[in-house]
């Protein structure tokens, strides 16, 4: 088909469209829903025993805050990367917070090992249902909001989106799930995050192709 004819056909079928909200508005809306969802799970599961005492410890508080910061920056990055006119450099924005989170968790492990001389690790898979209940709806929602990224930056959007979901799920878990020791948290939380993010780096492109808004077909 001649490009000029394609243009005429595109214009002739162009219905009014609803504009997407600005990336930061999308991110904020998603964060509100994330907080609501985590609150629901906390209501259902109950607060973790001695939560206030736990969060008063710097070794717990700093990584927890860093995980929240990672989640917030990562969802901002994802919504900006999905918009064609925003800088691709957004992909680096959550990195410092993520590094701080992993580093402070690692530091906690080291401190624990120096104090007690051994590191115990709890089997972590018992929290799988809670993880799934938080992260599945959050992922579906986020990737639904970001479908338009398929055409632009599928991989970096998928990776930062996955990081946002995983970091906030981890931060939420800390509120109700009793994890034993810094090593468990490092292995199960940061490990799961790394696994998820790597996974999404590999499947980002096909995933977004799958959920992409379909291109219109014009007669040839």
């Amino acid at each position: 088909m001649r490009t000029e004819d394609l243009i005429e056909q595109m214009a002739a079928t162009a219905e009014p469209v609803r504009r997407l909200p600005a990336p930061s508005v999308l991110a904020l809306a998603w964060l509100v829903l994330a907080v609501a969802l985590v609150s629901l799970v906390v209501l259902w599961q109950g607060w973790r025993p001695n939560l206030a005492g736990q969060l008063a410890e710097v070794e717990v508080l700093v990584p927890w805050l860093a995980s929240i910061l990672t989640g917030v920056l990562a969802v901002l990055a994802a919504t900006h990367l999905a918009a064609p006119d925003r800088s691709a450099r957004w992909r680096w924005v959550p990195l410092p917070a993520f590094a701080l989170w992993v580093a402070t968790l690692g530091g906690g492990c080291f401190a624990e090992w120096r104090e007690s001389g051994d590191l115990t690790m709890a089997p972590g898979m018992d929290c799988l249902p809670e993880i799934a209940i938080i992260s599945l709806p959050l992922s579906l929602l986020l990737f639904g909001l970001l479908r338009h990224a398929a055409a632009i930056r599928p991989v970096s959007t998928a990776v930062t989106g996955a990081l946002a979901v995983a970091a906030l799920a981890s931060a939420g878990m800390e509120l109700f799930h009793h994890a034993d020791g810094a090593l468990s948290v490092l292995v199960w939380h940061a490990g799961a995050v790394t696994l998820l993010v790597t996974g999404f780096a590999l499947v980002g492109r096909p995933l977004f192709r799958l959920i992409a808004i379909r291109k219109p077909r014009f007669a040839r």
Partner: peptide, 26 residues
């Protein structure tokens, strides 16, 4: 034609408050 079809598909992602050029160039 690829570019035009993509523009058409994601035209709701353009924010009129911002310049058009960076959007279409990306």
């Amino acid at each position: 034609q690829d570019i035009l079809l993509t523009l058409h598909t994601v035209r709701h992602s353009y924010d009129p408050a911002r310049p058009f050029r960076p959007w279409i160039v990306t």
